[in-house]
Simulated assay, not measured.
Amino acid sequence: MIPDRIMRKIERCLALSQSANAHEAGIALRQAQQLMQRYGLSEQDITLASVTDHTATAQAGKTPPRYLNSLATLVNSAFGTQAVYLATPQLSGTQVRWIGQWQFLGTDGASQVAAYAYEVLQRQLIRDRQAYQSGLNRRIKRATRIRRGDAFAEAWVAGARESIVPVELSPAATEALEAYAQRQHGELSSLSPRQRGQLRHHDYQAVHQGYDAGRQVRLHDAIQTPEREALGHG
């Protein structure tokens, strides 16, 4: 195993090789190349070494609902990460229960922040969705209650997206994250999130309320708090 100090030294040399000072850049590049040759490393090995992963529990089973998939996409956009959905079966008596997780991949510590941000946002989203559903007429059908709750939640994520500034990943970073994911999981299949059918006329009130609630979210304010508290509004 390559010592961390060697990996960090190579990374520093490669960074310095981009210097505007041609002499300094040349020396740094030669040092990086010598170290890489000595330890049998390629440039992709160095890039992959900067990628980390952290997981966040999803409030879902084998297949996540579309609103949680959208939430993971929002977090990826905010922190320059990529997310892989993992579902693990657990046997409970004679029944199999699936436990879902998002694995966030990122560089420079982004994966840890993204996983935490997802958990914070998910708690607030689930809480707001439940509060919305509790205010619905108790006589409506269960399917209608779920459909409107999902519509509220999807609109909530759309509203929350307004408060973020997307992080643009470089082609090299994107390639590194994809290579890391493939190294860990092999060939990944496309995720088809669960959705609850087409909206009906009276469902659009749920969309308006969800969007308004999501617009109150302040993601970056929440993740700067010293303790893992539920995300507040305002």
Rank of each mutant, 00 (worst) to 15 (best):
E178R: 11
N137R: 08
M36P: 04
Y85E: 08
T63S: 07
I140K: 00
I223D: 01
S70K: 13
S50G: 08
R228M: 07
Y67W: 13
V120K: 10
G93C: 01
G61P: 02
I140F: 01
Q182L: 03
Q195W: 13
A78N: 05
G80E: 06
Y67N: 12
S17N: 04
H220F: 14
I126R: 08
K141D: 12
R38D: 10
T144G: 00
V217H: 00
P89M: 10
E168W: 04
G100Y: 06
T81L: 06
G61L: 04
N76G: 15
Y204N: 12
A173I: 12
A20C: 04
G186P: 07
T107I: 11
A172P: 05
D53P: 00
F104K: 06
R161Y: 15
H185R: 14
V165K: 13
N76M: 05
D203A: 08
G40S: 03
R218Q: 12
Q216W: 01
A58G: 09
A15S: 01
A22H: 00
Q33H: 12
R200Q: 13
H54Q: 15
T73K: 13
M36K: 14
E154Y: 09
S170K: 11
A110Y: 14
W102Q: 04
S163G: 10
V207M: 04
D53V: 05
M7N: 08
G197W: 03
R30K: 12
E178L: 10
S189F: 00
V167S: 07
N21M: 02
R30T: 08
R215P: 00
E175M: 07
A15V: 01
K141H: 15
N76R: 00
A143E: 12
G93D: 01
M1R: 10
T174F: 02
I146G: 03
I126Y: 10
E11F: 05
G149A: 03
A25Y: 03
P171A: 02
T107S: 12
T225L: 10
S19V: 05
Q209S: 07
Q122T: 04
A213M: 09
